[in-house]
Design a protein around this nucleic acid. Structure first.
Lengths: 120, 120
DNA sequence: TCAATATTTCAAGAATAATTGAGATGACAA
DNA sequence: TTGTCATCTCAATTATTCTTGAAATATTGA
């Protein structure tokens, strides 16, 4: 993860509709959701507005898309999300390992790390 | 962490100078740095510009400040950073615990979680 | 008190980003 | 091959955010 990519990702996440889309897709899991279904889950979203925000998210690599018949299916790009966290928190414990533990605890509430997984 | 607070935080992090400041302060640790010292670490930052960005960061609760003599010392607010991660990744493993492990591994590269720490 | 240092505040202009609505594209089914 | 559905693209308008420079505030030392 480079600075430019992180800036794009944070920029994408700083807009209400887009943040909601990402969180929706994070819970939706790897099957993802069609653009139309995402739009229905948002209040008052015209198709062009939805398309604009989805393409911003895709450019920022926070979501990925694939075509399935007439629909385009979007899903969250968890690799980018975790890269973002790592970029932001890198070197947070220079001599003070205790200070950044809350961040780890927060993520652990999601799920336990794979034993022996290579640290990114 | 509520949506509004998360939007403010992501908005604050989506600007080059501010993202650099946060990362600088994350590595600086709890002692923090004075506004002037932060400004010197940025290229071509006028004091008013620096003050504008620092106040944006403080409004987003990503940094905290205290006065020390003539200087104002800023340090990273790790509680907000970890809250942000938790907000973004909440419910990422609805039935699919394996998919979000990369995020945990990324954070673990920073430091190990405290044993028995309450999960946020 | 006066001058110097460190930082903030304010207003104006410049730069970026979001929304809207109309029209285009691509896939499928009759 | 025509019609319909799902989604995207484009250009214009509106809204938000950033930078600049001048002036204000707070702290300290002479």
């Amino acid at each position: 993860m480079h600075e430019k990519q992180a800036l794009d990702a944070f920029g994408a996440l700083s807009q209400e509709t887009r943040l909601r889309i990402v969180r929706l897709l994070v819970t939706a899991g790897p099957e993802g959701m069609s653009a139309g279904a995402i739009g229905e889950a948002m209040d008052s979203a015209s198709s062009s507005r939805m398309s604009f925000h989805l393409s911003q998210l895709e450019q920022a690599r926070l979501v990925e898309s694939r075509r399935e018949g007439r629909s385009i299916i979007y899903c969250a790009a968890l690799v980018t999300l975790s890269g973002l966290v790592e970029f932001l928190m890198r070197d947070c414990c220079q001599g003070h390992p205790e200070v950044c533990n809350p961040a780890v605890a927060a993520l652990s509430s999601c799920c336990e790390p794979t034993k022996g997984a290579p640290h990114v």
